[in-house]
Amino acid sequence: MEGTRFWLALIALAPLLLTQARRARRDTPRLPEAGGPDHGQAGDGPAATRLLVVGESTAAGVGVREHRQGLGAQLARPLHHRSGQPVAWRVNGVNGIRAGALADRLAAAPAADADLAVISLGVNDTTGLTRPGRYQADLLALIKVLRRNQPTLPVALLSVPPMQHFTALPSPLRQVLGLRAAQLDRAQRTLAARLDGVHHLAYPVIADPACLAEDGYHPAERGYAYIADRVADTLATLLTPCH
């Protein structure tokens, strides 16, 4: 249903949407990726669990100054608090990357040991009009890369953000992109449902502007903490301690 509505809206509103997209690209502040170490630990002592977060700008920490304020570190903290055990975290994100390019990037790098991998993708595949079938295939390739040395590695797919709620984008552009994001997320949910050990996580919508970065688009430190707190209970059930 979203597919038909998306293409009808895209065709009918193409001139307006193109103008709005160009204006949004021109006027939206371009924030850098986070600096500082791309790894760390919540809690003292030998790590009981190792968390790997890969993806696009959210994994790259766009919206905060350092990775210790970003998604990986923010996820590790509530997981540590819930388990009472140290949680090591590492992120590998690239602002603007799509699922297929990320799969290629990680395939060319040494495999990272982890007890749980979290994938945060979809916005760039949405704006780049990646076909749902192509997106699903690229996600599958990415999961296979993450599991090349650990076939049973639990993987959590953070849902494609509902872009209709991105109020920094003008209307109707954000509604049309929201339709496309819903298509890709359905493909993502379908993939998770048919793969053992792959889980789909609903995206916590950030309604408070104080939780957003200055671009009104990416989470700020409070926004990453908000997302992490909302998904931590589910992630905690997936973590397997190192032995």
Rank of each mutant, 00 (worst) to 15 (best):
D113P: 09
V145S: 01
Y226C: 11
L116K: 10
S171T: 11
V160D: 00
T126G: 01
A103M: 06
V155N: 02
V205W: 03
D196E: 13
P132K: 00
L169F: 01
L146A: 02
R147A: 05
L169N: 00
A232I: 06
A103D: 09
V155Y: 01
K144Y: 04
L140Y: 04
A187L: 01
V94P: 05
G178K: 01
L212M: 15
E214N: 11
N95H: 04
Y226W: 14
N149Q: 15
P154F: 11
L140G: 15
L102H: 04
D104F: 02
D229R: 10
A207P: 07
P170R: 05
D125T: 05
G122N: 00
A101H: 10
G93K: 05
V123T: 12
P110T: 11
L184S: 03
L184H: 07
P161E: 04
A232R: 05
A232Q: 04
G96T: 06
A111M: 05
L129V: 08
A137D: 14
A192D: 09
V198D: 07
S171K: 07
R186T: 15
A168S: 14
D115I: 06
L191P: 05
A99E: 04
P162V: 03
P219A: 04
V94K: 09
R222V: 12
R230Y: 06
C211R: 14
H165L: 05
L158C: 01
T130K: 07
A210V: 12
T167G: 06
N95G: 15
R186S: 10
L157T: 13
A99L: 02
Q175H: 13
T167V: 12
A99F: 06
C211A: 07
R134V: 05
G93N: 08
L139C: 10
D138M: 08
R148D: 06
Q175Y: 12
G93W: 06
T127L: 11
Y224F: 15
E221F: 03
T190H: 08
A181E: 06
A207H: 13
Y226P: 05
E221Y: 07
Q164D: 13
G100H: 11
L177R: 03
A225Y: 03
H199E: 14
R194Q: 13
G223K: 00
T190A: 12
F166D: 07
D138Q: 03
A210R: 07
T167R: 04
V145Y: 02
A101K: 07
R189S: 09
R134S: 11
Q136V: 08
P204Y: 02
V231R: 09
R180D: 07
E214R: 15
D125E: 00
A207E: 14
A112G: 09
G96N: 08
P170L: 08
L153V: 13
R222A: 14
E221Q: 13
T127R: 01
A99D: 13
A202Y: 12
L129M: 11
Q175N: 12
Y135K: 04
R131Q: 11
T152D: 15
A111L: 08
P209E: 09
S159P: 03
R147D: 13
L173T: 10
P219F: 01
A202F: 04
P151W: 01
P132Q: 01
P219E: 10
I119R: 00
P209D: 13
F166I: 11
G178R: 01
L121Y: 02
Y226S: 10
A111G: 11
G96V: 14
G178M: 08
N95S: 10
A137Y: 05
S120P: 08
